[in-house]
Design a protein around this nucleic acid. Structure first.
Lengths: 181, 181
DNA sequence: ATCGGCATATATCAATCCGACACATAGCTT
DNA sequence: AAGCTATGTGTCGGATTGATATATGCCGAT
């Protein structure tokens, strides 16, 4: 699946600008299982515009730059539906944290400690984002399923991390959920 | 972290050919959290060879093609150690399965069912790989931590998938762990 | 006050990486 | 004999990333 299809999917839920699509995959509902950069989003939108899969509405805003709000067209809806019926590629997970953890005997204890904390903070942030998005979702929907999936997986990762602190020889911290006390 | 560092890490554990590195990230111990293709592995090895980070040993095997076995050099070890002390990039997770699940109202029930089964099978395969690799690991090592992390996360995903079958309106199957009966 | 940082917003571009293919040999099946 | 799998190295077009450029306005700090 390419970035074009990804944008199409987001635009099927609501109209958005390139900037807003980026935010959605960075902080929003999709952040857990999707990645895309400006360098692929903007060309994708331009490309789909010339293909008639999306339409633009240029908005001149006071105090803010020009905004191009894209909407999905009927043709785009059809293209999305088609893409949704292809066999999905296998999940891909990349973790530099785990790579470093693998070689823990070659890194300073201090660095390992920092990296471990960073990962835990990252996971808590992800979980917070997901739970926040989960408030406004009707049960039984695809959104609810995806939300629950993310929550289950990240909660398990946090659980494992907290249980393993000791066995990695790292100092015990205060309960990570209220680390900011 | 680029593919060069990744190859360096694998070569730090044991000498290997490009083909064996690919297998390691595809099926082996690293498959859960690392990705790399031939198109990046071979150029990376050539590049590192000219930089003196690795050395080659060409093996002419009977009945098999020429094999270039790469080993890490002292210079390579130093480069690896340096790379291991950089701040790791955030984890990246991409799932086309979850993307399709999000739009489940736009896909055929049959397709959703197939895709759901595919994901469960994929997860069971991942778990089997991880558990298989876990046999020959000494407790307390980085390997053990990484192995446990993968196991925890994937087990949670499987658990959630099986619990959610009904709520997605999909037919209940036999226990997925013995689906091959 | 103005300087830097942050948020909004679009866009480009070199470097990197993926996925598919080409080439080569051998064994095993249909 | 043809095709598939496995071992093995390698290239190449196209997709993608990550950094950067450009522009405007707001807000806090020096």
């Amino acid at each position: 699946m390419n970035v074009r299809t990804l944008c199409l999917g987001i635009l099927a839920l609501r109209e958005a600008s390139g900037y807003e699509i980026k935010k959605a995959v960075e902080d929003g509902m999709f952040s857990h299982f999707i990645e895309a950069s400006y360098g692929s989003i903007y060309p994708a939108l331009t490309h789909m515009l010339s293909d008639g899969l999306v339409s633009v509405r240029e908005q001149v805003q006071e105090g803010k730059p020009l905004k191009k709000t894209y909407s999905i067209t009927d043709s785009g809806q059809k293209a999305l539906k088609h893409a949704l019926h292809e066999i999905p590629q296998q999940d891909k997970y990349k973790s530099e944290f785990l790579f470093q953890a693998l070689f823990r005997d070659q890194v300073d204890a201090q660095h390992l400690d920092d990296v471990f904390d960073g990962q835990l903070q990252f996971l808590h942030g992800e979980l917070a984002t997901i739970e926040q998005c989960g408030d406004s979702i009707e049960p039984g929907s695809g959104h609810a399923f995806v939300n629950g999936y993310g929550r289950a997986v990240i909660a398990a990762a946090i659980q494992y991390m907290e249980d393993s602190r000791g066995s990695l020889g790292l100092p015990q911290k205060a309960t990570s959920s209220d680390a900011a006390e």
